[in-house]
Design a protein around this nucleic acid. Structure first.
Lengths: 356, 356
DNA sequence: CAGGATAGGTAACGCGCGTTACTTGGTGCG
DNA sequence: CGCACCAAGTAACGCGCGTTACCTATCCTG
């Protein structure tokens, strides 16, 4: 396995551009022939022998196709673009990973353009126009928009020029197809798990009640309870800021509100950060997890859920899957297939750890 | 602000490609003239009037330059490529953000290519070749390699064809310039902070002692102690797995090893995950933070450090800055400037929160 | 043995744009 | 009036490649 210094290819390529012409000359054929074998044409009509000679020449010269020129000539770029503020927020970066991997499989290149967070809070909630523009200049074949958290967004007009799919967000004013987590089913599976463990009095630490995550997860929780013939005691639902401190305070309120015999035996925290705070509130009172109080979270923020003590049982947001599905959907659209559904829901799997 | 439906531009552009020729016709000039005003040539010699006419035509038709064609003709792509496994690991995604933002400022486009984690553990520790190859096919002007954690890497041979900079890693066998965190200075500032708070017996929860992070941070800690006329008691340095559990166990050992009067009054945890575990060990013993034991971490993993109770004082890894500096360095190299230094160290700032 | 059908190629155009060389009409100057 | 000069603009080439139309030799068929 001695590393021979026969890296002539690299040396040759370094001097600014081995082209198909060079390959053709080296192999003693026309450039067209080279193009044919490199693109594996069906009706090839190139003899095995010259095909081999050409491949040798490619190796020998270290030829590397010029993607730009190819795109120009063939009128297709093999690029998708994704506009996202996610780069800023490690939280949902798995969307990108899922999309990347899927694109890679389809031999597409994913161009990632950052979207200014600034816009996201302003009156125009749209993801950034400049990024979209840049991507269109690259002649991407399709566009993806990905948000850090599930919400409605406004998308730039120019988007209408190419197929577009939204991930973890939905078109607030149009009909663009979108991929979003099935919050309701997620809330349901969480509470079902608690019921299955024998809990009957379940406290819920809520998020801002107006966002899709809160609406869906709470509805799911109610469904699960209803099926068990139970109702959600309004006193057991407390709102919290979406932080550890918020979770701590909410948990304190919920735990101190009732005499011990009425105290909930389980807490459904609508996100993991709040669960983190709830842990402190519970431990502070000399209670154990899950012995005295079971806790279940949502989001599966690895850095928290997998490192809390005991490890947090939680419902995962399917970021990676959403990213992959987004690319698949986009591929279908660019291939001219009709839109399957305006909104595709992706399941949120329960991750069993040790807090229930 | 009524939204008029005068989106003729979009409509015009939709039908596959408004070109410079179309603009030229619409403005009644030659394509060359259009090219000149769009690229803002110095020796323009285009009258203000026709320049205006051309710009109007651009607006009217919704013309958008074709980046690929431009690259082909001008022989420069305005693209940098970054090969990284970071997409997989939210941990260091800020490197990408920093690089993105800087590239955006320089009007460059950053192509992000995923690197298979698989390779990173194998005997060939190199970041993936396929990704590099793909990027070179796009004719990127420069390459960046970014790793999730500070270490030596092997880079594909083909890399030598364009300027290359390593971020958060260094070339294990060559001379490629790299940007890495100043671990030593970071360790030093952490311990200095503890000393300043009056601590004299400081425990250290170490990482795998062979990795650059551990070597540097520990050396820095020793330096700070030496300057205060102190030495690091070997019994106070315990190794730990780089997880919360590892930190918990290490903290238990260190806390239980000494009678109360000899017990360290502060713990320097070489990463935040271990600090998270140390918190539990401390609280379990009925001790308070920072009253009885001060804790300082490293890495500034926001999801942990900012949400622990009390919030964790820690030393930040300058991911975003490293990303930006990487792009700046690359810009200098592509501009033909000589390499400043083989290895640029970036400072690790102390983030004061509430655990010291 | 004429005629067509194939295998095995090649010449040449165009993708959209940057760029260099060239043209043209007007103006200043001796 | 003749010449140089400049502002204003254009024709035309080439970037590297995909693709279509064409061309030539060989083989088969009737």
């Amino acid at each position: 396995m001695a590393k021979t210094t026969t890296s002539k290819p690299a040396a040759a390529a370094r001097q600014r551009g081995v082209t198909m012409n060079d390959v053709a000359k080296h192999a003693g054929v026309s450039r067209t022939a080279v193009s044919f074998v490199l693109s594996n044409r069906e009706n090839a009509s190139i003899s095995e022998e010259t095909r081999a000679r050409i491949n040798e020449a490619v190796q020998a010269l270290g030829y590397r196709p010029n993607a730009g020129a190819r795109a120009l000539a063939s009128q297709r770029s093999d690029w998708y673009g994704i506009v996202t503020e996610i780069v800023t927020a490690p939280f949902a970066v798995d969307i990108i990973k899922g999309a990347q991997d899927q694109a890679w499989l389809d031999r597409k290149f994913l161009l990632i353009a950052p979207s200014d967070q600034a816009d996201a809070v302003g009156p125009n909630q749209g993801l950034e126009d400049a990024a979209t523009e840049k991507l269109l200049e690259q002649r991407v074949e399709g566009l993806l928009y990905a948000a850090t958290f599930h919400r409605g967004v406004h998308v730039p007009e120019s988007t209408k020029e190419v197929p577009t799919v939204l991930i973890n967000c939905f078109d607030a004013d149009g009909k663009l197809p979108s991929i979003v987590p099935d919050e309701r089913a997620g809330g349901r599976v969480a509470v079902e798990r608690l019921l299955q463990a024998g809990h009957r009095r379940i406290g819920v630490i809520n998020l801002d009640p107006d966002i899709p995550a809160a609406i869906g997860r709470l509805a799911g929780a109610r469904e699960a309870l209803a099926e068990a013939g139970l109702e959600l005691d309004p006193g057991l639902v407390v709102p919290g800021y979406a932080t550890a401190d918020g979770g701590y305070e909410a948990a304190c309120r919920i735990l101190d509100r009732y005499p011990q015999e009425d105290r909930p035996t389980a807490l459904f925290c609508l996100n993991d950060r709040m669960a983190m705070g709830a842990y402190d509130a519970i431990k502070e009172r000399g209670l154990t997890i899950p012995g005295d109080i079971a806790v279940i979270g949502f989001d599966n923020q690895e850095l928290i859920a997998a490192y809390l003590r005991p490890k947090l049982t939680t419902v995962a947001l399917p970021f990676e899957k959403m990213g992959a599905l987004g690319v698949q959907t986009l591929a279908a659209l660019t291939a001219g297939q009709p839109i399957i559904a305006d909104q595709q829901l992706v399941g949120c799997p329960l991750l069993e750890r040790s807090s229930v």
